[in-house]
Design a protein around this nucleic acid. Structure first.
Length: 282
DNA sequence: CCAAGGCCTGAATG
DNA sequence: ACATTCAGGCCTT
């Protein structure tokens, strides 16, 4: 039976660009996840939630060993997996994940985090958990009822309208996450792309981190660099920008190469290359 | 179809 | 100091 203590590295997972709303006090890590807060400790290993419901935020239910065995058929991924034992893909609240990555467009991690914090403080519910105060992430309805000006005050810039309109589509159940979770990759993506501010890359992030699509492989600027650097033989990635039409072609090639857990591969590669370039996670 | 340009914002660069 | 550039894209032309 796998040992979660060694198969989950809380620090590396939280610091891998998947999630932005977290705080660290000593050996305690707190993560805001939708209408919940998660507290995670490495030693002694412990994960508890504000809601008292088990969430499997770190995808504790995945067969990590099996997935690792599968994706390390690729040599570069194998190398990266040695550097970051216990790095996980997370299972996040879909709404928070959508808004987070809509906001991430053309921005950087500290900036994204600041905006999300402002959203929580302005619209979210304040709770006490483990003797500390936290602001939960606003519900879809809360943001759907916000004014454009409210959102502008959270420094979302031109993304304010995307966030407002996306929240309305989600609050009205026109886009329904339960349905998206059940849908296959292609159908799921088609529906997600209906949300303003969500293109191919953001859709893949949302699918990988919150909608159970482990084959999603977000092609961001870093991953494009990586594919050019290590995989020039395998993929035709001559250009720096990816046209809409080519994105899905490349994704198909990527899936053929990395397999059905391509999203896990992406996370290891992404983590390694950012660290190599000494990019900060906060 | 595809390429190019614009875009809020704050930190980093020169 | 002060201007310019850049950062995990998206949308429109």
């Amino acid at each position: 039976m796998p040992d979660l203590h060694t198969d989950i590295n809380i620090h590396e997972t939280i610091n891998s660009g998947q999630i932005f709303l977290w705080e660290n006090y000593g050996n305690e890590w707190f993560v805001i996840d939708g209408h919940d807060v998660i507290m995670a400790k490495q030693k002694p290993f412990e994960i508890i939630t504000f809601s008292k419901k088990p969430k499997n935020f770190f995808r504790e239910d995945d067969n990590y060993r099996k997935i690792l065995k599968n994706i390390t058929k690729d040599k570069i991924v194998k190398k990266a997996s040695k550097y970051y034992p216990g790095l996980r893909v997370t299972r996040q609240d879909p709404f928070q994940c959508c808004i987070s990555f809509i906001i991430s467009a053309n921005s950087n991690i500290p900036n994204i985090r600041m905006r999300l914090q402002k959203l929580c403080i302005k619209f979210g519910t304040k709770v006490r958990f483990q003797k500390r105060e936290f602001f939960l992430f606003p519900t879809p309805k809360m943001l759907a009822n916000a004014t454009l000006q409210d959102l502008q005050e959270c420094k979302l810039g031109y993304r304010s309208k995307y966030v407002l309109d996306a929240s309305r589509l989600i609050a009205s159940r026109e886009i329904d996450f339960d349905e998206l979770k059940k849908a296959e990759y292609g159908k799921c993506k088609e529906l997600l792309l209906k949300l303003p501010g969500i293109g191919d890359k953001v859709a893949d992030c949302v699918m990988l981190f919150s909608l159970e699509k482990l084959g999603a492989f977000p092609l961001d600027t870093w991953i494009v660099k990586i594919l050019q650097k290590y995989y020039s033989e395998n993929f035709r990635m001559a250009k720096k920008t990816i046209s809409k039409n080519r994105y899905e072609n490349i994704h198909q090639d990527v899936l053929n190469h990395f397999g059905k857990y391509a999203g896990y591969s992406q996370q290891f590669l992404y983590k390694m290359e950012r660290d190599l370039n000494k990019k900060k996670w906060l």
